[in-house]
Design a protein around this nucleic acid. Structure first.
Length: 575
RNA sequence: GCGCUGGUAGCUCAGUUGGAUAGAGUAUCUGGCUACGAACCAGAGGGUCGGGGGUUCGAAUCCUCCCCAGCGCGCCA
């Protein structure tokens, strides 16, 4: 059940019955002030303008054709032609009962289930994951959960970077070390340091660069020994990623890994097929695709290079092969790319080429869910003091440590094991929420303290609301599920209405790939609960009211747990 | 030069096909724990929505010009 959609349906029908043309939008919104009701319909004014009639007269006609008597206690015309809809408490209570008795909180599944491929995380295996990988990993994972929840078939794709010239350097360094097996594994436990050392040798050491290039050639030629070395490196590096995913409570596993190298065999075909489609142009020795839509104002067309003059392929080629695979093998209707905004031109070129070459059908939805670059406090691209990046693992450890210190202070009675568990859940939740709650497609500023804050609009605030409810239940004993819901107090009605709006938040997240909408919803829900908690005593109320309020609390807990779950954030009974 | 993204309170950010008095968090100030958990609640102050012009009953939102910032624009990914 989705209140906005329900009202939209009724008001649209009434608009048409009142003389508005077909498909006139009702423009239903949640009212931002209590005096304007719970919802408002703003479509009358737009329709009146088109019909060139007085909006208030049209509003009157719409009201004559609008029967919301089951849902609303009153519908008023206000201002230049707003329709203010005040929902009926009894109807809200009925809907709450339906949600309480449903495994999915009575949220309607998608009317047209799709197969959706989600391309996210995609670290470069040559190095360790750093804080810049957080957005793609966390936001992509939230979309996986939300789309799955409403009934889409979701296929995760971790397009990791496991190929390219830098691996020659790493393998050359790796093979020159005396150790192997477990000892080597130890060396690679600091992948970042390993990379830096190899890079330094590549830059400084005589002959090393040549050795590195030899390794690239051998690797690409399929040399068995070299391939085994490479495989060993990749396995260790992937294990690093999996440790992070597990700690972050991210769904990605090794089964979701579809590395760049998996498309190697198809790259020559991509070029051949582009040629057959008549899209290939040789320019300065390189194979390019020129599409009119990527023309600058000076009429110079921007090329997309798909094969270098030396015959080598580029990431555009790989992305085209991947896109074709996602259509032919995975049968995707929609593909979401959670990728840095800097790759916007590149991805749009790839999408356009794939469609022009008929690698994928025209109606396939290809969407770049872009996000900005991480900046330091000075507004410049983020770097540590020594010019490196902050390792993701270090951020997570710091988050858990700070959470541990806090829980030890707030709740010293918990055992150390319990405090560690709480610290993990709260610390990771805070980090994830800090990133999920921002919609910015622009750059964002990395800040330890805001990232690790436990107050205000943060995951711990939501987890705290949940833990408070669990505490009430521990004291309340058994709940009478047959009790009637009463929504007498303003705080009760406000909480009730908010509880029924999760579906509207999900609707927007699914459409735009913006989990911050869900964060915002959950923050408002928790806030409404906190106000209700202060204004309406639960355990001290008379039985009838007590049971009613316990049911409200129960549904709040379920909604918080479900909503946070969709963000990949866990709840706790105590914290 | 061209293009993409952004500019909203001291700071970090919301703002749903244009709607009513632009909202949160944080910081500052005031009040609230012998209380169902104070990681909280109630309240106060804080705004030329980068600037000009335009479209209309109505613009942070749409159009246009300008300023500022980040990024991208042929053989890295």
């Amino acid at each position: 059940m989705n209140i906005r959609q329900l009202l939209d349906h009724h008001v649209s029908k009434a608009l048409i019955a009142a003389g508005a043309p077909d498909k006139t939008p009702a423009v239903i919104k949640q009212s931002n002030r209590a005096e304007f009701g719970d919802y408002q319909a703003n479509g009358v004014m737009g329709a009146a303008k088109k019909l060139k009639i007085n909006p208030r007269e049209l509003a009157t006609k719409v009201l004559e054709n609008l029967d919301l008597s089951d849902i609303a206690e009153k519908v008023e015309i206000a201002g230049p032609g707003f329709l203010n809809i005040h929902l009926k408490s009894a109807w809200l209570a009925e809907q709450l009962e339906l949600a309480l008795n449903s495994d999915t909180l009575n949220i309607s599944p998608a009317t047209h289930p799709q197969t959706v491929v989600i391309d996210y995380s995609a670290p470069n295996l040559a190095k360790e994951m750093h804080v810049g990988h957080l957005r793609s990993t966390i936001i992509g994972d939230a979309l996986v959960r939300v789309l799955t929840f409403i009934g889409h078939k979701v296929i995760r794709q971790n397009h990791v970077g496991d190929w390219g010239t830098q691996f020659g350097m790493l393998l050359a360094h790796m093979n020159s070390l005396p150790s192997s097996g477990e000892a080597l594994s130890m060396q690679l436990s600091d992948l970042e340091g390993f990379y830096r050392t190899a890079k330094k040798r590549f830059d400084d050491e005589d002959g090393f660069a040549e050795t590195a290039r030899d390794y690239v050639v051998k690797l690409q030629a399929g040399d068995a020994e070299c391939h085994a070395l490479w495989q060993q490196f990749i396995d260790i590096s992937l294990q690093h990623c999996e440790d992070i995913y597990s700690r972050l409570n991210v769904l990605l596993t090794r089964d979701d890994v579809m590395p760049e190298s998996a498309y190697n065999h198809d790259l020559a075909n991509v070029i051949k097929d582009l040629d057959t489609a008549g899209l290939l142009t040789e320019d300065q020795g390189a194979q390019c695709v020129f599409l009119d839509e990527f023309k600058g104002k000076d009429d110079k067309i921007l090329p997309a290079i798909v094969q270098k003059s030396d015959g080598g392929y580029l990431y555009a080629t790989t992305d085209l092969a991947a896109l074709r695979y996602r259509h032919k093998e995975l049968h995707a209707n929609r593909v979401l790319y959670f990728v840095d905004a800097r790759q916007s031109l590149h991805l749009n070129q790839v999408f356009a080429i794939a469609k022009a070459a008929h690698f994928v059908p025209q109606e396939m939805q290809l969407e770049h869910m872009a996000f900005g670059t991480m900046m330091g406090k000075d507004g410049k691209p983020f770097k540590t003091r020594d010019g490196g990046t902050v390792k993701l693992i270090d951020l997570l450890k710091e988050a858990e440590q700070r959470a541990f210190d806090l829980v030890s202070e707030k709740n010293p009675d918990l055992s150390e094991d319990e405090r560690k568990k709480v610290a993990h859940t709260v610390g990771i939740g805070a980090v994830k929420y800090a990133d999920l709650s921002k919609n910015r497609s622009s750059d964002y500023i990395f800040n330890w303290d805001t990232m690790l804050s436990f107050e205000g609009n943060t995951a711990p605030y939501l987890q705290y609301a949940y833990a408070r409810i669990q505490s009430i239940f521990r004291k309340a004993g058994k709940i009478d599920d047959t009790a009637t819901l009463h929504l007498n107090e303003a705080a009760e009605k406000q909480l009730a209405t908010k509880l029924l709006q999760l579906s509207e938040a999900i609707e927007l997240v699914v459409k735009d790939g913006t989990p911050n909408i869900l964060c915002n919803y959950l923050f408002e829900l928790a806030g409404n609960f906190m106000s209700f908690y202060e204004a309406c005593p639960i355990l001290k109320a008379d039985d009838e009211i007590k049971n009613s309020r316990l049911k409200l609390a129960k549904l709040t807990a379920q909604t918080l747990d479900t909503g946070l779950g969709l963000l990949g954030i866990e709840t706790l009974d105590q914290m």
